[in-house]
């Protein structure tokens, strides 16, 4: 390539020969300038030729903030960072421009527990580990009993995040509270601090430990599950990234769940796929939150279990029994 003579020459010349006349110096300078210009022109010509040779091959990409961009195939390079690091970065960053919100209609829950099973399957959990659980609730003996699906409330003021000593569990700007398996030291302070009993521990070897052994850790899916660390509801952050509804929401057969974006003021029913206005849904049905008096600011709303079209059927499995 037309490498340019380093300009150190230009300076060293007059230094070497102090007796050189001014005219000679100016002449040398002129020669050097001409050389530089020629070299630069040659470089530019070469570059333009290279560019034109591959021009026309454009590739289209979707960026992290959901913009479609066109990139020349010449510019496309494999990411320098390892996959694990990228997953970590994305997982902690979240999906800017969104505020995910959850509405659970208690009048529709018939305790099918399809949400529980879909969740346990997606996150490779044991049958006794619940990111989401349906609880049998009754305020007092004069009020009717009802089934209450209870995921993590993804509080905006999460007590679990406050007490974590190593920043393993964190609140993401778009709503969900996640847990980092690679960071968690297993002190269980978050379990103690959570008033909703939403956090579980991998007390022993996880169910699919051998099968998931070589998988790159995805913080948004919390797979592979790791022994001695916390696992919890992740609002199916991996599905949100793909533009899909959470596992539990889309697996419900009874239309219990609405999920959506608070910024857009819309939520979509996971069963009927009907999209409704969030503010109207909340105000028309007298929505409430779980224990708002604790100051946790939950991101999950409940619609009261009114006018249920079927009787309450208690489950035999709900109450823990001696084996």
């Amino acid at each position: 390539m037309g490498e340019v003579i380093p300009d150190s020459n230009q300076e060293s010349q007059p230094e070497k020969n102090k007796k050189t006349s001014r005219r000679k110096f100016v002449r040398n300078l002129g020669l050097l300038g001409a050389g530089l210009a020629t070299g630069a022109a040659a470089l530019e010509a070469g570059h333009l030729f290279q560019k034109s040779k591959f021009k026309g091959k454009k590739e289209v990409f979707l960026t992290q903030d959901n913009r479609l961009v066109e990139v020349d195939s010449l510019e496309v390079k494999a990411h320098e960072k390892p996959a694990a690091e990228i997953l970590q970065e994305h997982g902690r960053e979240g999906l800017p421009g969104h505020r995910w919100i959850w509405v659970i209609d208690l009048s529709k829950c018939r305790n099918a527990r399809k949400c529980v099973m879909a969740c346990q399957e997606a996150h490779h959990l044991r049958p006794d580990q619940f990111h989401i659980n349906t609880l049998e609730m009754q305020e007092n003996k004069h009020t009717p009993a009802y089934h209450m699906p209870k995921p993590c409330q993804h509080c905006d003021n999460p007590p679990c995040v406050a007490v974590c000593p190593v920043d393993a569990t964190f609140k993401r700007p778009d709503g969900p509270v996640l847990i980092d398996n690679e960071r968690c030291i297993g002190c269980r302070f978050c379990i103690a601090a959570c008033p909703y009993s939403a956090r579980m521990m991998n007390w022993s070897k996880p169910k699919y430990a051998d099968q998931d052994k070589d998988q790159v850790y995805n913080i948004e899916l919390n797979i592979p599950q790791k022994i001695g660390t916390i696992t919890k509801c992740l609002m199916s952050s991996d599905r949100l990234r793909e533009g899909k509804l959470p596992y539990c929401v889309s697996s419900c057969p009874n239309g219990v769940y609405y999920f959506g974006d608070e910024y857009e003021d819309t939520v979509t029913n996971g069963t009927t796929k009907e999209t409704v206005r969030l503010s109207a849904l909340l105000s028309e049905n007298a929505a409430y939150q779980l224990m708002p008096e604790l100051g946790t600011k939950p991101r999950v709303y409940y619609l009261p279990p009114e006018k249920r079209p079927y009787p309450f059927e208690p489950s035999n499995d709900a109450e823990p029994k001696k084996a």
Binding site: P165, V166, I185, G186, F189, N202, G228
Partner: peptide, 26 residues
């Protein structure tokens, strides 16, 4: 003895968060 991951003890100092009472306690 109570830690699920005793091998990550150093994390308390490496990634210690001042908000956590565990950090104060240590």
């Amino acid at each position: 003895m109570d830690m699920g991951h005793p091998d990550r003890l150093a994390y308390v100092f490496l990634y210690g968060r001042f908000q956590s009472p565990i950090f104060w306690d240590v």
